[in-house]
Design a protein around this nucleic acid. Structure first.
Lengths: 191, 191
DNA sequence: CCATCCTTTCAGTAGTTACTGAAAGGATAC
DNA sequence: GTATCCTTTCAGTAACTACTGAAAGGATGG
């Protein structure tokens, strides 16, 4: 009997489509977890992206088997990020949500946010540390001159790294699709 | 009294250095959390990086106020990642740990691992989804031809994105410092 | 103004991850 | 062999994060 069921679902095209979408949604959810994003948020985003049409809160709840509260809060968070968008349908009281369609644009948004939240504070801290141990403020009387020297070197190494990475991010941010594929071509030519 | 203490610590160069290092360690730990890495692991790594000398388990425990078990397991995990390294000192029974000194190399290692664990599975899933809904297997009899079309488009969009991103990662991986600064120069010239 | 429909909030709880400390497991020295 | 020193493991617990569902909070329509 289980074989018959499998065969039947395999043949029904609508079910087949749905299964493929679910596969994508599941994987996206797992990926989200290894980044800072939680599973549900990532899954909702994947769902809205893959179906490519506006869905309402109840659609999302039903498809992902999550509670109303969870759906509401996750949808709001995704809107705050700016990678999905609220939508009205005329004559319908419900609110609908849809994903940005351009993956490149989504990436730009996310990259900008991550730069702001992750790179920038590190860079600031590094500079603050450097000020704390620079020659003037620390003087040369220190017994542990070597330690200071080592730390100073490491701070500089890290600073350079973060600054260069920042510049690379900068290239991505604000350069949607066309710009990015050009970046890749340039890179491939350069190496 | 607290004022006198503050003044005293501010002037003592050794303490000053330590405070600066702690600042860096703390920030690095916070950042780690927004990535998948947990706070302690990130802090240990930051500590080993910033002091730029090998430390033993007890040094780490003491400096970060963590238990032996936690230190042991986190150190091992960092070794597994390959961004710190075990070290013996002649005539000393203890094992010491030190961070890679080259930030670019550390980044390459991390990027390679993330590509393998995050990009590759997504790409594979996308291709699997595409196979599930391609013309041959699904046929044209489907009532929901539009839905299929939409999903197909989105899968293609995502596939292109992941593939291009993969290529960019590829450029970073295995191109340590010199290669990367060149990448940046190329990018800056191109835009 | 009430009824209806939909959204948001939030206290409580389930589920997960991180951490401790004690005990067991080596290795080396004598 | 035993003693010493160091590392690893892991059961138990603490801390945290995600989720639910019910209740409160709007908005729109009649």
């Amino acid at each position: 009997m289980s074989r018959m069921t499998t065969a039947a679902t395999a043949v029904d095209p609508a079910q087949r489509l749905r299964t493929a979408q679910d596969l994508f949604i599941g994987r996206w959810g797992e990926m989200g977890q290894t980044w800072g994003i939680n599973r549900t948020m990532a899954e909702i985003h994947a769902l809205l992206y893959i179906v490519a049409q506006p869905l309402c809160t109840d659609d999302v709840m039903e498809r992902l088997h999550i509670s109303r509260g969870n759906a509401s809060m996750s949808l709001r968070a995704l809107c705050d990020w700016g990678i999905i968008r609220r939508m009205h349908k005329r004559g319908d009281r419900k609110e609908f949500f849809e994903s940005l369609s351009d993956v490149w644009e989504m990436f730009s948004i996310i990259a900008a946010e991550r730069k702001r939240r992750e790179m920038d504070p590190v860079l600031e801290t590094i500079k603050q540390c450097q000020r704390m141990i620079d020659e003037k403020s620390l003087g040369k009387q220190a017994a542990n001159q070597l330690d200071v020297q080592l730390t100073r070197q490491r701070l500089m190494g890290m600073e350079e790294f973060v600054e260069v990475t920042n510049k690379i991010f900068q290239q991505f941010i604000g350069n949607a699709k066309s710009g990015l594929t050009r970046v890749v071509k340039v890179l491939l030519k350069a190496f």
